[in-house]
Amino acid sequence: MNTPRHRSALLAVAGTALVLSLTACQSDGDTASPAAPEATVAATAVSAQPAGDKGTGTSGTAGSAGSAHSTGSKDSAGSTGSSGSSGSAGSTGSTGSTGERASASAPLCTAGDVTVSAATQDGPPYTHIVLTAKNTSRHTCRLTGFPHIQFLESHKQDVPAVAKSKPATPVVLTAGAPAYALVKLSDGGMDEDVEPVSAFSVTLENDPTVISVTAPGSEGIAVDPAKALTGYWTPELRNGADDF
Results as ranks from 00 to 15, higher is better:
A68E: 13
P147T: 03
Y126N: 11
D193P: 08
S76C: 13
L185E: 06
L131M: 10
G145K: 07
G99C: 09
S73E: 12
L108D: 03
P125C: 03
C109R: 11
L108Q: 15
D193M: 11
T169P: 02
G55R: 04
T56L: 07
R5Y: 05
A168T: 02
Q121L: 03
H6V: 09
A133T: 03
V159Q: 04
S91P: 07
E219Q: 08
P37N: 00
S186R: 15
G72C: 10
D224L: 14
G57F: 06
T80Q: 15
T56A: 08
I129W: 13
G81I: 10
G78Q: 15
Q157L: 12
L108K: 05
A14L: 04
T136H: 01
H128M: 04
L18M: 13
I149R: 07
H139A: 09
P107I: 06
P225C: 14
D242V: 02
T140H: 09
Q121V: 08
T169K: 10
W233L: 00
R7K: 01
T92R: 09
V13T: 08
T80P: 13
T98F: 14
T3G: 00
D243V: 14
S97Q: 11
F146W: 04
D193Y: 02
V116L: 03
N2D: 07
P125Y: 12
S76K: 15
T92S: 08
G112K: 08
E205Q: 15
T144N: 06
